[in-house]
Every structure is written in structure tokens, then in C-alpha cells.
Design a protein around this nucleic acid. Structure first.
Lengths: 118, 118
DNA sequence: TCTTGACCTAGAGTAAGCTCTAACTTGTAA
DNA sequence: TTACAAGTTAGAGCTTACTCTAGGTCAAGA
């Protein structure tokens, strides 16, 4: 698919996608004869995964570390698994602390409700 | 308490605390005769609350909006309650999507485990 | 032919949130 | 009385992650 479609399907701007390629997050993107990028379903899967990591608070630099291992092929599987497991642990503890923040927020809201002067 | 102790108890650097004061997040911080700030337990509570909002993804600008209402006193209670309720809703949906990301991550990790060559 | 739209590159600019620097004062301990 | 630690200000600089600009190519339709 072309840039326009890929941009629409990932909800990332063309600028951002080019930027991701520049910093090494996207590798081996095909080009058509006129030099325009064309993206595959595999690229879409990969970007979807990147966005998942991003949305769970992983900085681009860490995602890049994973991407570099991925580019090296199967031999880095163990290492990648470890990275994901570490991220999983972080995410899990963050969810737990967010649940606590939610409870604290509820308490605060409850306080506002109880102290209404009206 | 002095800057050093407050900094330790909030886990924020003196630089950051002065910055928070500068942008209006911290108001009416007392000064001792030599011009040094001294913080109260109330200040600590407020910063703790700020950090809670921050850790759940609220940008400083929104926290600032809340802080400004707070500075106006009781008459803004309703408005503040609404802000907190909106944040609560956002936080809740973010927790839910993070739980989904966690499940997707588990799947990916499972894939690495199943495809081990060793 | 001419315009429109999609794309390209290199590199500059932006926003948020700090983080640091320079130059200075003040209080305490040796 | 001198050194050290802790504080102050204004303002510059940094990092992350984009976002935009300038100046260009190329293919298709009116």
C-alpha cells in the first residue's frame, strides 16, 4: 500500500512514519520505481506492535533496541523474549498503581460530593 | 520543612519544585527570613496529589487548570469535581486498554516460548 | 500544456517537562 | 575566619517525539 493508505491505517502521519524509518524503527521499506515507499501487511503488523509498546509507555529508544534485535533474526529470540518479559512486568505494576490512583481519585471525588454546600 | 527535606519526601529535585512554583502549580509557599522556602505538610499533600495526577497521565497544563480553580476557593468545587470525574473516566479507559495490551504481550511472549529452537 | 496531488529529501522548528549554569547570599562548624 | 553546605534568582540548555518547511520529482486528468 502507498504512504497515504498506510498513514490512514496506522493513524500516524507520513512525517511520523518517515521519522520512524529514519531513526531505524522501520527497516527495509520497499520503494516503487519512482522512489515512493510502499508498505506491506507485515509492515502494518510491525507498526501495530510498535504502537502497542508505545501506548504502554515504552520509550522509542527501547522499542528501537527491540527492533535492532529483530533485524538480527532468530538468534536474538531469547533476548527479545526477555525484553518483552521485563516490559510485561513494568506494565503490570503500572496497571496496579493506576488502579490505586483510581481509588484515590474516587475518594477525592466522593469528598467533593459530601461537601457540597448546595 | 526546608527544601532538602521536601525534595526528599516528594522525590522531586529542588529544580523541579522551583519550576512547579514558577509555572503556578505551587502557590503561597512560605519563606523564612533569609528568603529560603519552607514547606508545610499541606504543601506535601498537594504535591502528592499533583504527582498522582501526573502519574496517571495528566499533563501539567491540566493540573495547572485544577490548581487555579483550587486557588479560587470553595466556589469552584463543582468545577473541580467535574474535572476529576473526566480524568477518572480517561484513567479507567486507559487501564482497560493497558490490560488488553498486557494480554497481547502475553501472546507474543507465548509465541517466543513455543518457537524456541533449543 | 498545465495543474493537481501524492510523494520525496534534508534539515529547521516546536512543545512539554524538566535540568543545569552562573553568580550570589547565608548559616554553621572547625 | 574561613570553608562548606544549602539555599536563592534569571535564564539558558536539553531530551523526546514529533511536526513542519523548502524545494524538488513525477504521473494522471482537464
Amino acid at each position: 500500500m502507498n504512504m497515504k493508505e498506510f498513514s490512514a491505517r496506522t493513524a500516524l502521519s507520513a512525517h511520523t512514519l518517515r521519522y520512524y524509518e529514519k531513526i531505524g524503527l522501520l527497516n527495509h521499506i520497499h520503494r516503487s520505481s519512482n522512489g515512493h515507499r510502499f508498505f506491506t501487511e507485515k509492515d502494518l503488523e510491525w507498526v501495530t506492535f510498535i504502537l502497542r509498546l508505545k501506548q504502554t509507555g515504552m520509550p522509542l529508544e527501547s522499542i528501537l533496541a527491540y527492533a535492532k534485535l529483530r533485524a538480527l533474526g532468530k538468534s536474538t529470540n531469547q533476548e527479545r523474549q526477555t525484553l518483552l518479559e521485563q516490559h510485561r512486568a513494568k506494565l503490570k505494576s503500572r496497571i496496579e498503581s493506576e488502579i490505586q490512583h483510581l481509588a484515590a481519585l474516587d475518594e477525592k471525588i466522593e469528598y467533593y460530593i459530601l461537601h457540597k454546600t448546595s
